[in-house]
Design a binder for these strands. Structure first.
Lengths: 230, 230
DNA sequence: GCAAAAGTGTTGCTTATACACCCATGT
DNA sequence: ACATGGGTGTATAAGCAACACTTTTGC
């Protein structure tokens, strides 16, 4: 294979927007309305505009797709893809951002998000190299859950410890002991803050409500059970 | 601030090449021979060429700068920077790769690396936004040391447990207990493999020699001492 | 013998896991 | 009363830090 001189790229900012719905991890996908890959399912995204920085573009896209206002709990760059031929239109590099949002009402019709829908993490074929991108981003999310307080980004404030545990169970796909989980997260400095209020579930004892704490990393980490069993 | 339509970028692949020299973490820096920032110190790198993928370009740059042949122990993408105005030539996105190499003889004269030199991690002013890039990459390296077997990439094979410990101490900047460290890494499945041979240090008992093991992640992690003290 | 680095044993503390048990609500 | 989820106590096991101690070399 021969390689030539420098070449001009367009830069796409693509988003992996994760949430938890019905106790399952879900990702926001769109149906493409134009070529290439018209009619295919794909990750939401768009081109970086003149004068725009990457985080700005990611936030703009996120708002356009979700209608989410105000500040985003979690939005972080994951990785860049630029393999030759990954986009039939020509040289396009894709900078991928991972966003984590609470359970949203529904994709908003009448906006750019009209063709958007929440989808379970399965093996739906995706346009471009988006299947690989999605896989990489989910693995990143699973890993981040251990060391960073991103689980709270899945929850609307205020939330209960049970809500938070449901996030871990959905993203990791494993059941956790409610009692030990409770002790762990409440004793972890800066992870969650007691609001003093309570919420009454349909049945059972009222649960204390918490908000996100100031910590930016979790120490000690919330380890997922036996990741490498032989 | 106003933003315009999509714009064409050139894509630079920049490298943060780390090694340990004289018990200190060191990074390979070059002196720029051309504008912009002529005469400034900068990270090595170059433009992505037509038909080339990002990992290919990163490996090519690494070889050009270090003369390192064969396979690279560690070379991984860190992050992409594309802030407007970060390069006076125009829209340039920089995809940054982190490389970790063993102690190399010297920057090779007569190659692209003629202007290269190993430099301690200090506050030398760097061209473009390379100071920030370097800082991000080093933090990534420090963090990776805990969960991934990257420390072995700093060592020429075969190596002793003392060599490996010196890597951790240099990168983290903290002393570690030799006895506990020894037990920890030798009992960690897949991290290092006994070669059966020994090496005699200038003084002291001969040390068993090891090679890199097959593990791609370390479990349980090698935790650095108290990262967040209050 | 002595210095120096490698490697092992042991102890005491911290942390995790498993699970018994109690609490506070709706029906 | 009882089902349901929230939250605490506790015993056992696993892991880790500190450090005494032994091994094997060069001088």
């Amino acid at each position: 294979m021969t390689t030539g001189p420098p070449v001009a790229f367009h830069i796409a900012v693509d988003l992996v927007i994760l949430t938890v719905r019905d106790g399952m991890l879900a990702v926001l996908l769109i149906e493409r309305g134009q070529e290439p890959y018209r009619g295919w399912t794909a990750l939401p995204g768009g081109f970086l505009r003149d004068g725009e920085d990457l985080p700005q573009a990611a936030e703009r896209e996120l708002r356009e797709e979700t209608g989410l206002g105000g500040l985003t709990p979690y939005l972080e760059q994951v990785r860049t893809y630029a393999a030759p031929g990954r986009d039939p239109r020509g040289p396009v590099a894709s900078v991928v951002y991972l966003a984590i949002v609470p359970h949203l009402p529904n994709p908003v019709p009448g906006t750019d998000a009209a063709a958007a829908r929440w989808s379970a993490i399965d093996t739906t074929p995706l346009a471009f190299d988006h299947e690989r991108i999605l896989g990489d981003a989910i693995e990143q999310a699973r890993s981040q859950l251990e060391n960073r307080p991103v689980a709270t980004a899945f929850c609307r404030e205020p939330f209960t410890i049970g809500d938070l545990r449901a996030v871990y169970e959905a993203v990791w796909g494993v059941p956790l002991d409610p009692r030990n989980f409770h002790r762990k997260v409440t004793s972890l400095p800066g992870f969650v803050e007691d609001t003093g209020e309570v919420r009454c579930p349909p049945t059972g004892r009222p649960a204390t409500l918490y908000r996100r704490g100031p910590a930016t990393s979790l120490y000690p980490p919330v380890q997922r059970p036996t990741p490498n069993v032989d």
